[in-house]
Simulated scan of single mutants.
Amino acid sequence: MAMVGSEIERLIKDAFPEGHVVVVDLAGDGDHFAARVTSEQFRGKSRVQQHKMVYDALQGHMGGALHALALETLVPA
């Protein structure tokens, strides 16, 4: 079963409550999403570490209910 964008956004916001999260359904099929996450928690972390933090926030849904996620992580200016 596919995930809805609001559930993806909620999971990420729960892990990064001070952050700014935008989730977009790229294909309208509930399987291909893009997420832009801006968080101070990313400061000093490599891009790989940042993405792992977001994937961890998705609590195992990546590769299952969530098929594809184009991810952009940013540190606030």
Rank of each mutant, 00 (worst) to 15 (best):
E40Q: 14
M53V: 01
A68T: 04
A68D: 05
E9Y: 04
E72A: 14
A57V: 01
A2V: 12
G63H: 00
D31H: 14
I8H: 03
M53R: 01
A27L: 14
R43E: 12
E72M: 13
F42P: 03
D56L: 08
P17W: 06
L58S: 07
A2Q: 11
V75D: 02
L11P: 06
E18V: 08
K13C: 04
V48R: 10
L71G: 09
F33G: 00
M53C: 03
E7Q: 08
D29E: 09
D25N: 10
P76C: 03
A77I: 09
G64L: 05
T73Y: 04
A77H: 14
H67D: 00
A70R: 06
G44L: 10
V37L: 07
V24N: 14
L11T: 03
A68R: 04
L66N: 02
A34P: 13
M1Q: 12
V22I: 14
V37E: 09
V22K: 15
K13A: 09
A34S: 13
G30W: 13
V23E: 12
P17E: 01
M62Y: 08
P76A: 00
K45F: 08
L26Y: 12
M53H: 02
V24L: 13
T73L: 02
L71S: 09
G5N: 07
I8T: 02
F16I: 01
D56Y: 02
Q49W: 01
L26D: 13
G60W: 14
T38D: 09
K52W: 13
E40F: 12
M53I: 01
V21M: 06
A35L: 01
F42E: 02
A68Q: 06
M1S: 12
L58N: 07
E18W: 09
P17I: 03
V24H: 13
F42L: 03
T38A: 08
V23L: 10
D14K: 11
K45E: 09
V48K: 13
P17S: 03
L66I: 03
M62F: 07
H67G: 00
V4K: 15
F33W: 06
A34V: 06
V23M: 11
A35K: 05
L11D: 01
Q50D: 12
G44T: 07
I12H: 00
L58Q: 03
A65M: 06
E72G: 13
R36C: 11
Q41Y: 11
R10A: 04
Q49D: 05
V75I: 05
H51P: 03
L74M: 12
T73D: 08
A70H: 10
H32C: 04
V75E: 03
I8C: 04
K52R: 15
V22S: 14
D56R: 10
R36Q: 15
S6E: 15
M62W: 08
F16K: 00
H61I: 08
F16L: 02
P76Y: 00
L69M: 01
R36D: 14
V21G: 05
T73G: 05
T38V: 14
V54M: 02
E18M: 10
Q49E: 10
V24K: 15
A15S: 10
M3F: 08
H67C: 00
V23T: 12
D29L: 02
A34L: 04
Q50Y: 07
K45Q: 15
F33C: 00
